[in-house]
Nucleic acid binder design. Structure first.
Lengths: 196, 196
DNA sequence: TTTTATCCAACAACGTGTCGTATAATGTCG
DNA sequence: CGACATTATACGACACGTTGTTGGATAAAA
């Protein structure tokens, strides 16, 4: 095996080992030793790749966020553009999102859950907010406080709703969930409550 | 000094020491040793009160949440009732909230910030959701998944928006903020974006 | 064969949590 | 009221586990 391949494989093994532990343990309980036992490498090798347990988490998060950025700032806007002239928030238009969640759902639900990482939430929200402000016609509005509040409102709401839905995704179909979200975004919360 | 007074004082000293460290350090970097040095007590004494650093954080959070619950489930509903018949979301009606944030703002901003505690966010959201579901006419809806999602959506949105607005509360009047929120809740996000 | 890079065993340092013990506060009886 | 017994609070010392590093062995690349 070539050096570069080997390095890739070891790094990946450490990431995977960390994640399998992170599923049921909070970060602070995950020791470098435990990661290495699972990854099948010496503990010293770990320090060739990462400085500590947290830097593994960060690497996982960055990888996920790259994926998210691609989905949210490339595929989704392209899909929305296809729904021109009006913005149709139907299943087809939102396909990039359902695709993202079906592939990476577990990562989101754990990272934004009760044992998750607030720093990830912050970075994730920033990404969502960037997308939202991109959709504004007037770029000057991006620095407007009202726009920031609306963006923060929306990003927080979307992330929270996902966390609530995701564990029940088998009994509550994604289409129904999407429609509920669309209704909440386009008509507001109060009408949705009355319709329940 | 009496036993009970002493116990109270030591416990408080440990909490304060922890918080002064937590201002600039993430939890995992806060050692029991450092807490005790600041609190001026022996490390063994620490374990008479708390099991580890995290349990100090939890105690601080619980104390704060007791305060939040009192504000949100007693003072705020009472204040809203006084604005009868219509719900006026003005500075006077929302006084319990601004009071809460002016007194405990630092706690919220740190606990819900990038180095904060996702578990606190969870408990805080639960409290807000309880308040929201209390306002529902039909108690049976409380156990409905759609209702849960809407509640989570709303609670997350409100907390996020508040955190975004609060640091700028001096330049952005509470009335304007309240009106924005009302618009977001009653008409949805999309109309609000177009209106910006 | 030389060079480069990955991998590993062993070491010292540190933080952790738990002992047994000393000291101070409270309760009880002469 | 004062001395002794009881309780509970604070502390020093210990054994243990984890950490991060260093120098050397092994295998791939030049």
């Amino acid at each position: 095996m070539k050096h570069q391949e080997m390095r890739e494989a070891t790094s990946r093994a450490i990431m995977d080992a960390f994640w399998s532990l992170y599923r049921d343990l909070p970060v602070e309980k995950i020791t470098v030793k435990a990661i290495c036992e699972k990854a099948g490498c010496n503990r010293s090798t770990f320090y060739e790749y990462y400085t500590d347990s947290y830097s593994v988490l960060e690497a996982i998060e960055e990888e996920l966020l790259d994926y998210v950025r691609r989905k949210l700032t490339e595929e989704l806007p392209a899909s929305l553009a296809r729904s021109f002239p009006e913005i149709r928030l139907d299943a087809e238009t939102l396909a990039p999102l359902s695709d993202m969640y079906s592939k990476k759902g577990e990562y989101f639900s754990i990272l934004t859950g009760v044992k998750g990482d607030p720093y990830f939430q912050y970075k994730y929200k920033q990404t969502v907010k960037e997308l939202l402000t991109q959709m504004l016609d007037d770029p000057a509005k991006k620095f407007d406080l009202s726009a920031s509040i609306v963006a923060e409102f929306t990003a927080s709401a979307l992330i929270g709703a996902f966390n609530c839905w995701y564990p029940h995704r088998d009994e509550y179909p994604v289409e129904k969930y999407s429609m509920l979200l669309v209704s909440l975004l386009t008509n507001g919360v109060l009408p949705a409550i009355q319709k329940l």
